[in-house]
């Protein structure tokens, strides 16, 4: 039991890293564009399918394939923002964005169903079943690689935000769109690129998700509900909150699965969200909104 518990804890942290990356993308999009991107779930699955197609048909290793899938999803995101989300007005913006991104997600889901069928598939590179033996614990290799990947990409994201000129304009626009545009930041362009980056973050998450789980287009619902729960728990718009909440929630889920039953762990996960939010409606690290929305 003790060993299982520690293993569950470690597994939770390792998978939490990837959720942290995907949730960071989602919360960044919200902070920048005031859009809740319901399509984030289907973008993850799109990332999984792209990696799957590259691996199954061209024999490209899924980690190497990221060089293709990350830019591909970046452009999908930029295209979606340009085509649909840019048109959203200020009135009922968040509610409308939920419905528009849901419609986008339905279209992509329908297309994926037609192209790949509805049977579950899984990416199975040679290392997908091997485990790492450390201090008496067995850790699946892919979890370790995935965690490392998430750390590298999150570090890259933070470097982009805090060490580049683009990052400075991004943070300026995050703080105050009007003021940023007054000092010469092209807020529209920055928004589009931010949406692209937020979506590109799903490519890496989707690849690891596709190696660790069997998936079909319908898996997106499960993913988006988890990601939304994490982002809201951390406080919408808070990057640190999203990452902390991702680790916490995944650990809770894995530990409950061991201590009680895997069947009930998702219930606890969502109950935790309901309890925390009824005490702190703004989320764990969220700021109380100045604007009433």
């Amino acid at each position: 039991m003790g060993t299982l518990l520690v293993e569950a804890l470690i597994d939770g942290v390792l998978t939490g890293g990837l959720y942290a990356l995907m949730a960071a993308g989602l919360t960044l999009i919200f902070g920048m564009l005031e859009i809740i991107n319901i399509a984030q779930g289907i973008f993850v699955v799109l990332g999984s399918y792209l990696s799957y197609a590259l691996w199954a048909h061209l024999g490209i290793d899924p980690f190497l394939g990221l060089l293709i899938t990350v830019p591909a999803l970046f452009f999908v995101g930029v295209g979606a923002e340009w085509a649909f989300l840019r048109r959203l007005g200020d009135r009922d913006r968040v509610s409308m964005s939920i419905l528009v991104t849901y419609a986008i997600s339905l279209v992509i889901e329908g297309i994926l169903d037609i192209v790949f069928g509805t049977t579950f598939v899984q990416i199975r590179p040679s290392y997908s079943t091997s485990t790492w033996h450390v201090f008496g614990f067995y850790l699946p290799d892919i979890y370790v690689y995935g965690f490392a990947l998430a750390v590298v990409l999150l570090a890259a994201l933070f470097a982009l935000m805090y060490r580049t000129r683009f990052g400075a304009s991004l943070r300026a626009a995050l703080q105050d769109r009007t003021a940023a545009s007054l000092i010469g930041v092209n807020v529209k362009r920055v928004s589009t690129i931010t949406f692209g980056i937020g979506v590109a973050a799903t490519a890496a998450g989707g690849m690891v998700f596709g190696v660790t789980n069997g998936f079909n287009a319908n898996s997106s619902l499960d993913l988006i509900s988890r990601l939304l729960a994490i982002v809201v728990l951390g406080g919408l718009g808070s990057m640190g909150g999203a990452m902390g909440a991702a680790l916490a929630m995944l650990v809770i889920e894995d530990v409950v699965a061991v201590v009680w039953s895997p069947v009930w762990s998702p219930v606890i996960y969502f109950l935790a969200l309901l309890v925390v939010l009824s005490v702190r409606p703004q989320g764990l690290f969220g700021k109380v909104a100045a604007r009433a929305q």
């Binding site: 809740i36 809201v232 919408l236 969200l273 989320g283 909104a289 009433a292 929305q293």
Partner: peptide, 8 residues
């Protein structure tokens, strides 16, 4: 409020 309500 609104968008948190959606997630709830």
């Amino acid at each position: 409020r609104r968008h948190t309500f959606v997630v709830m």
